[in-house]
Design a binder for these strands. Structure first.
Lengths: 142, 142
DNA sequence: GGGGAATCGTTAGCGGTGCGAACGACTTGT
DNA sequence: ACAAGTCGTTCGCACCGCTAACGATTCCCC
């Protein structure tokens, strides 16, 4: 039975999301990059070059956190760092060719667990998730 | 437009869930207990007394992690620890009266942010989440 | 132009959360 | 009775986020 009230929905949804997040993180412990790194790299690819601050805002993370993430991506050769043409304070982060290749390659493998679980659901449940994914994204961005 | 393929759905859902999890964790930094502690305590309340190992399995966490969570709950007087009646190796964790009270009191406040966001959605989106919450929970448990 | 405020990215340090390996206490099975 | 297995714990590690503080640079306004 679905949760009836808004607060009940909030409780259920919160617990489910937290548990699923933990689960997904653990299900890909073998891969080279962490979810945080992948998310930042994917954002750079989707959105084009960004300053650390912009990228931090887009990922809802503080600038110091993004500094570390960007440093790890750069150290791995997956992202590049160039000086801002007109503002000496700023820096532009962009995905490198290696980063693009890794994203493409990783995209095929990284959702293996979740995609498999999704295939095990029936069509109605998948449709629910399909719509919910959009709503969840708006919630996270709100 | 909703994601079309299973892999696209997996990508979208994964990113949305991770971001929302991060968001929710940060949105309640003021409260006394962390989400992990609340989740464990709520599981104990829902399911009755459990051994650390059982609780770890239910929360999809390793026993060492649950040791620390249980210790913090016990130190806060929210959970009790009793020896297993017949097996000297085992221990039984249970919610204390204070724990029950805190859960009840906290339940009213802890979802404030999420519940408010939910109220800002339209009815259709809420219904989607209502159904999705169930599916997500099954996914996390799978 | 010059000087203070604002902005940017970074460094340093902290807390929370998870893991695996190793260990002692206890139980079980032979 | 003794070896093997189970349970909970301790220890050390890694990841991820935060705040506070700092130097470099730019902007604003006189």
């Amino acid at each position: 039975m679905p949760p009836a009230t808004d607060t009940a929905l909030a409780s259920t949804l919160r617990l489910a999301v937290m548990r699923l997040a933990r689960r997904m993180r653990s299900e890909r412990a073998d891969t080279a990059l962490t979810l945080t790194q992948i998310a930042a790299l994917a954002m750079l690819e989707r959105h084009g070059p960004l300053t650390p601050r912009e990228l931090a805002a887009a990922e809802r993370v503080t600038p110091p956190s993004m500094t570390r993430i960007a440093a790890s991506l750069e150290a791995a050769g997956l992202a590049t760092r160039t000086d801002h043409p007109s503002d000496g304070r700023q820096v532009l982060l962009a995905v490198s060719d290696e980063g693009v290749a890794l994203l493409r390659e990783d995209r095929r493998r990284r959702d293996a667990w979740l995609a498999q679980r999704l295939r095990e659901l029936d069509q109605a449940d998948r449709d629910v998730l399909r719509q919910a994914a959009q709503v969840l994204d708006r919630l996270a961005a709100a």
